[in-house]
């Protein structure tokens, strides 16, 4: 059992939890995730370790409520217990002194980017951060990023904060005006795909963090398989980060939508059970591609 020490409502789709998990905290590296099962009947879902504190023995999870499990997760309060958390899992992000790095985060993707930013800054890299979202109130953790980033650019679909547009616009400018050594993008699959297409002609090394459906997260089931440069890879142990230019994004999108009907059924049942008390604002994104 794992105890929730703090709970914060970040915006009306996103919550964060600080959880007591000393062993995971002391082993977590940038790019790692955990698999969480809230209760006996719950699903095992992967969530990135958005932050960790070895001294306090805590990890922070940042999650967007887009379906039954994440919605139910949002009901957790300080002092509540989570049945199972396993980790840290996944291959850590390759961190070294690159020079100038650009991090591109869409929506909840910032959960993955924050520890990467922290680690890159420790290695004294210059890091430009581009944060994108649909609108101003969906920008997550802007202050925390501002504290560490060398530069930060905010961009929204509706222009309610920062520039109006999509993340590839400022990214192109940064790449063309400066000697960028590596780009990392985390967010909706379509966004990561657009970043990959943008950086390809520049031959700029680009990493993306993939979010296929997972079950146990330790390389034993193959649910999370993706095609990378024509080869099958298990994202939970060989990823979740891969070279963006090698990813078969269309296949990933297809596989993410595999359980769409069951997910809708599960959410429907859950909504009935809690009789309107549980709002579900995030499910506008029907294929769940906004996840991460």
């Amino acid at each position: 059992m794992f105890k929730v020490l703090e709970k914060e409502v970040v915006n009306d789709q996103v919550d964060s939890l600080v959880i007591d998990a000393p062993y995971i905290a002391s082993h977590a590296q940038a790019g790692n995730f955990v698999v969480v099962r809230m209760h006996e009947k719950g699903e095992r879902i992967p969530l990135t370790i958005a932050d960790s504190d070895t001294a306090r023995g805590t990890i922070t999870l940042l999650f967007q409520k887009i379906g039954k499990s994440t919605e139910e997760f949002g009901t957790l309060k300080q002092g509540d217990l989570i049945r199972d958390i396993a980790g840290p899992l996944g291959h850590p992000t390759p961190i070294k002194k690159y020079g100038h790095c650009v991090l591109v985060g869409g929506g909840i993707g910032v959960a993955t980017l924050y520890p990467i930013l922290k680690a890159l800054k420790q290695k004294k890299n210059k890091v430009t951060v581009i944060l994108g979202a649909r609108s101003h109130d969906l920008i997550v953790w802007e202050d925390k990023f501002r504290e560490l980033a060398s530069d930060i650019l905010v961009i929204t679909d509706d222009g309610s904060s920062g520039i109006k547009g999509v993340v590839t616009m400022p990214l192109k400018e940064v790449i063309e005006s400066s000697a960028v050594k590596i780009a990392m993008a985390v967010g909706p699959v379509r966004m990561m795909q657009a970043v990959a297409e943008l950086t390809r002609p520049y031959k700029l090394q680009t990493l993306v963090s993939l979010n296929p459906v997972m079950v146990e997260g330790t390389g034993m089931c193959g649910a999370c398989r993706v095609h990378i440069a024509g080869k099958t890879k298990f994202a939970c142990i060989e990823g979740p980060e891969f070279n963006a230019h090698d990813v078969d994004f269309e296949e990933l999108i297809n596989r993410q939508g595999f359980y769409r009907e069951e997910e809708a059924e599960s959410m429907e049942k859950y909504k009935k059970k809690c009789k309107g008390k549980c709002k579900n604002k995030g499910s506008k994104d029907p294929r769940g591609q906004g996840v991460k």
């Binding site: 009947k41 719950g42 699903e43 095992r44 039954k68 499990s69 079950v215 146990e216 034993m220 089931c221 193959g222 649910a223 359980y259 069951e262 997910e263 059924e265 599960s266 049942k269």
Partner: peptide, 22 residues
């Protein structure tokens, strides 16, 4: 097969939606 059997045996997907895993 490992995924299929894990879903049913460990996660009890045969009892979805009572259990969350489909």
């Amino acid at each position: 097969a490992s995924e299929f059997l894990t879903r049913v045996n460990l996660m009890k997907a045969d009892r979805f939606p009572e259990y969350d895993t489909p």
